[in-house]
Structures are given as structure tokens and as C-alpha cells.
Design a binder for these strands. Structure first.
Length: 558
RNA sequence: UGGGAGGUCGUCUAAUGGUAAGACUGCAGACUCUGGAUCUGCGUAUCGGGGUUCGAAUCCCUGCCUCCCAGCCA
């Protein structure tokens, strides 16, 4: 989880340090990661996971995985399963501490009765519409519910009957009796329980009343002995309520601390919007490689270590900002560069014929598997008279600064020979270039000392090439912040129509054994990972991220 | 126009009264059998105005801007 470098300082760590120094919580550090199982985890959760699990690990404490499953209408076992898988994959160590708010429904119910007995909660018969109308506005106080002063006995009776299923959905709620004039809307007699005759993914039909987030969260933290309850900024306004419930109950009181959630350019990170992309079939499920979900990034080829490095680089503050997508890509490349075996593949094949290379001759040339990791060793790559090269690596009329293949120019074929272009074969009708003809210099075999050439290009031996499908992904959105939309539009207006391009390419034989999930660097192109659908007779690779390409950058400027 | 929280390079983060630092991005160069990687260099910032102080990003006053809150969602 912590990987190599020492974690940067941040304000939450400072608080923990101070708490340890003062002996608060007996020097313990116990955090929790509390997702609601109503969607898949995304890269924003990765940040939260790193903070919560990372802090626990750093201070020799623990971090629980706890599902905030208080709303059965939106939650599902599928999400629970995916969340457990994703947290594990990222390296979150929760041991056997997988908990559920629903584990505590009985205790919560008992505590609600206790608040009723203390005159701190009451059953309210107002409809949701009436509650809204009487809540007031930010500038005007609300009005007390006409049911606010029911007797304890009546409240107890009604609450029990709510639990027993005697009333339909929405008929009544249990509300905390706080202050309808509070400037903090969360304190205007917030709802603690609502009636929901719904099947819960864990408790089934046992309950027809379900606790609201505010009533559940702090008490769950308390039960689990959490010390630092870390959440995102939008809960800042809820902290007084978090504290109020704990204080009224007089139970162990953890400390809520809020930090800024992650925002990424060209990305949406709201479960509602991600769900919409999935449900409308705009993407191929929650794990579509274009999704910012953990499962999507995994399928795309992002590594846990790369994602962790990114999350660690983020820092923790209370500033609302937006992190550049390039930063994510930097950390992914950095990890993949160290760990990915290199291989040669051609995405848009163009035939190259070496006219002075003997017909039928074949050589197996030595290629380095990973220049960043000598222990990865070498492999043999077949070479013959006809090879495939990238269409981009040939240009009949080269622009300024282009130093790949063009008539009269020479380049090195990676791990092979220097070749000189002597002509092309074109389709007589369309004029399209069908073949490039070159001569090779047999004295320039790789490994031998020879003259320098400006460019080295990759290639695949035609006689031994295996077909591959490559899925080339680009950003899902065309604008930095798809959440900023003009009136009357929604974020879908900014979908990138070219976020996926599928090409049929050629690869060296080493790729034949690729298993789903295997990661490679296709030399000079980028990092690719075998898709979950990839089979030996139909290899499919997802482009994880391109290599930095200074030539492409130069061209874009023109 | 209520309450809460924030404003430091283009972006993110640090500096906790004492030389405004780092990362990403960008630009320039070196090196290179990946126009990759690596290395070097360059650039740009304390929201405005007052004040306290020998000294202010930091403390005080004031103004401005941004974000969050009126779910029986979390």
C-alpha cells in the first residue's frame, strides 16, 4: 500500500499526529472506508482508499471496509462484490473486517428508542412534500411539525408499529427533535428513519424502516471504535449532526474530518452519471476501459502500483480543485515503463519488401524484453524478406523534421538491419501505396558496430505475424470539465465520438501466449493490455496509454 | 441577502512569523538501436486594499471570488 517513497505531509496526518501525542483515543488509529454499494468504485475512491488504508498502515492501526447499505432501493450485491474485489486489487488491507451498516440495524433501532424516551426524537406524520414545505429556506426558519410534541408513549407505540410494517411507504418518519430554526438545514429536525417496504440485499424483508445516512454513520463509526472518520467536503455541514447524535447517546465519539474529493479533467466522477453511461449503453459496462472506474482502469491495463502512486501524489487538502488527467497518465506510464515487457506490433500495417534479401531466408534475431529491467532477459524475433511496418513510419513526401522512411532515406529496423528506401509500389487506380521497397545492408546487423541512423522503427515479420485486434481509446469527453454545462444541456453533449477506434494489426509471435490482463509495451506505440475477451484465436488488446510522442506533439502544433 | 468551507505558478500540493519549494504540464537542449526512458536548463504564483511587525502566504481589519447545503440519497 505504501510502496516506496515516504508519504507527503497533510492536514489529516497532522491531526492524527497531534491526537497520538495528546493520548486521545489511547494513541490508536482506526479508520474506515465506507462506500455505498450502489455503483462501482472509481478513481476518486482510490484516493479515499489510499488515505484511509494508508494512514492506518502508517500508524500501525487498522482500516475497516464498511458498506453503507442503508438504502435498499439503490443497492445491490453485485456492487458489494465489485467493491471488495477493487479494494483488494488496489491493496487495501481490511483483513476479515468487512462490515455493513445493516449489521447494526438492531442496535440503531434500540438507540432510536432511547432517543425517543429522552424526548429527542418523534414520529412525524407529515408527507415528504409537507416536510419540505415546513423546512424553511436558508434565510427563513422552518416551522415545527404539528407532531413534534407527541408523548413519549405515543411515539414509542407509533415507532414500533412503523417497524412492524403497519404503515405504507412514506406515511411517517422518525425525526430528531433539534431546532427548526437552525441556520444549518441539517439540524432542522432531520429524518432518522423512513418507511421502505423494500427487499434489502442482506437483511431481506426483516426491516421495512431504514435509517438515514446521518443517523447511521456516526453510530456505526462508534460501534467499530473508529478514531478518525474521514469523509469528503460535502459532509462538513453534517458534522454538527454527527456530533449531536453521538452526544445525545453518550457513546464513544469518533472525530469526523473532511477532505476534498478528487476531480479529474475530461472525466465525470459521479456515480449517477457513471450509471447513466452504463444504463444508456454509451459504454460497455462499468468496466469499459474508458470508464474512470477501478474496474475500467484495470481492464484498460492500469496497474495497482501506478494508481497508488498517482493517488499518493495528490495530496490531501480542503481546496476544491481539478487534477489534470495528464498527471494520472504520467504515474501510470512511470510504473508500466518499469514493469512491462516490450514487444513489436504494427497497428496499421504497410508491406515492406527488402529486395536484396534472399527469398525464403529467415533469421531469428535477439530482442531485449525490457531495457529498464535486465532480469527480464531477451527473446528471439523472426525476420525475413517481407515485413510489416507502421504506415506512419513511411512518407513519400516527408514534412520538415520527419526522419523515418522516405525515398532515398535509411532507417534502422529495430534489432535488425539498416534499410534504405528505393521506391514504392502503388495501386494503379487509387494511387494508394501498397508496398515500400528497400535494400538492406547486411553489415549492419543489430549488435554490430555500425553507422548511426536518425531513426529506428519497429516491424513484424510477415511470414510469422499473428493477427491482433487493438482497441485504441481516447478521452470519453471533449472538454476539461464535462460537469460545467450550459443551460438546457447535459454532460452527454460533450461525449467524444472518437473515444474508441478498433484496428486490426500484426504482432510478433511472442504475443500469441498473452492471457487476459497481461500488460505489454508495444514498442514506440504505447502500453497495451490483453482484454478479458482476448482468446488465442482472436487476440484483443486495449491501449492503456500512449507513449509520450514528441513527434506527434510537433506535428500537432502545425 | 442564512449557514458551512475555501482562495499560493497553467494544474495539484508544500512552506505552520524568517530566502515562496516540489510534482505534473509547457518550452529549449543533451543522450538514445523505442522521436520511449533518462539527464540538463528555462518559465510562470501568494485574490484585492489597508494594518501589526525588523520581517507577513502565514496574524488583524476590510472588500472580492469560488464551492457545498432547502432528499423520506449517501
Amino acid at each position: 500500500m505504501m510502496d516506496a517513497d515516504s508519504p507527503p505531509s497533510n492536514f489529516i496526518r497532522d491531526i492524527i499526529l497531534a491526537d497520538i501525542a495528546s493520548g486521545k483515543y489511547g494513541g490508536r488509529v482506526h479508520t474506515r472506508f465506507p462506500p455505498e454499494p450502489n455503483g462501482y468504485l472509481h478513481v476518486g475512491h482510490a484516493k479515499s482508499i489510499m488515505i484511509n488504508f494508508g494512514l492506518a498502515e502508517e500508524f500501525g492501526g487498522k482500516c475497516n471496509l464498511r458498506f453503507d447499505d442503508t438504502n435498499p432501493t439503490k443497492e445491490d450485491q453485485e456492487y458489494v462484490d465489485s467493491i471488495i474485489e477493487d479494494v483488494r486489487w488496489l491493496g487495501g488491507d481490511f483483513g476479515d473486517r468487512v462490515y455493513y451498516a445493516s449489521d447494526y440495524f438492531d442496535q440503531l433501532y434500540e438507540w432510536a428508542i432511547e432517543l425517543i424516551k429522552k424526548g429527542k426524537a418523534y414520529v412525524c406524520d407529515l408527507s415528504s412534500e409537507e416536510v419540505r414545505r415546513t423546512r424553511g429556506t436558508p434565510t427563513e426558519p422552518g416551522q415545527n411539525s404539528p407532531y413534534r410534541d407527541r408523548s413519549v408513549e405515543e411515539n414509542l407505540n407509533l415507532f414500533e408499529r412503523m417497524k412492524n410494517g403497519e404503515f405504507p411507504d412514506g406515511a411517517r418518519t422518525l425525526r430528531a427533535k433539534i431546532d427548526m430554526a437552525s441556520p444549518n438545514l441539517n439540524l432542522r429536525d432531520p429524518v432518522m428513519y423512513r418507511i421502505l417496504h423494500a427487499e434489502h440485499h442482506r437483511t431481506g424483508r426483516k426491516w421495512c424502516i431504514y435509517p438515514m445516512y446521518d443517523w447511521a454513520h456516526g453510530q456505526c463509526d462508534s460501534i467499530e471504535g473508529i478514531t478518525h472518520s474521514i469523509c469528503t467536503l460535502e459532509f462538513e455541514d453534517h458534522r454538527p449532526l454527527y456530533d449531536w447524535f453521538l452526544d445525545q447517546l453518550g457513546i464513544y465519539h469518533p472525530q469526523q474530518i473532511e477532505f476534498d474529493r478528487l476531480n479529474l479533467t475530461y472525466t465525470v466522477l459521479s456515480k449517477r452519471k457513471l450509471l447513466q453511461l452504463v444504463e444508456q449503453g454509451i459504454v460497455d459496462g462499468w468496466d469499459d476501459p474508458r470508464m474512470p472506474t477501478i474496474s475500467g482502469m484495470r481492464r484498460r491495463g492500469y496497474s495497482p502500483a501506478g494508481l497508488r502512486a498517482f493517488a499518493r501524489s495528490l495530496g490531501v487538502s480542503k481546496t476544491n480543485g481539478i487534477t489534470e488527467f495528464e498527471k494520472l497518465e504520467y504515474y501510470i506510464r512511470q510504473d508500466l515503463n518499469r514493469t512491462s515487457p516490450r514487444v513489436m506490433a504494427v497497428l496499421r500495417p504497410l508491406k515492406l519488401v527488402i529486395t536484396n534479401y534472399p527469398e525464403g531466408q529467415l533469421e531469428w534475431l535477439e530482442a531485449v524484453n525490457n531495457p529498464e529491467d535486465p532480469s527480464a532477459g531477451t527473446r528471439k524475433v523472426p525476420f525475413g524478406r517481407e515485413i510489416w511496418i507502421e504506415r506512419d513510419d513511411f512518407c513519400e513526401v516527408p514534412p520538415k523534421g520527419y526522419y523515418r522512411l522516405y525515398p532515398g532515406n535509411e532507417v534502422r529496423l529495430r534489432y535488425a538491419y539498416i534499410v534504405t528506401c528505393e521506391g514504392v509500389v502503388k495501386d494503379p487506380v487509387t494511387g494508394e501505396i501498397q508496398e515500400v521497397h528497400c535494400r538492406y545492408d547486411p553489415s549492419t546487423q543489430s549488435g554490430q558496430p555500425s553507422r548511426k541512423v536518425k531513426s529506428t522503427i519497429h516491424w513484424v515479420c510477415a511470414a510469422h505475424a499473428i493477427p491482433i485486434e487493438a482497441r485504441l481509446y481516447d478521452k470519453l469527453f471533449t472538454v476539461e470539465d464535462p460537469n460545467q454545462v450550459p443551460e438546457g444541456q447535459d454532460f452527454l453533449a460533450y461525449l467524444n465520438p472518437n473515444s474508441l477506434e478498433i484496428v486490426q494489426g500484426k504482432a510478433e509471435p511472442a504475443l500469441a501466449s498473452a492471457q487476459p490482463g497481461d500488460r505489454y509495451q508495444f514498442e514506440r506505440l504505447g502500453y497495451f493490455a490483453a482484454d478479458k475477451s482476448s482468446r488465442p484465436d482472436h487476440l484483443v488488446f486495449n491501449r492503456t496509454v500512449e507513449l509520450r510522442d514528441t513527434w506527434a506533439k510537433l506535428q500537432k502544433r502545425l
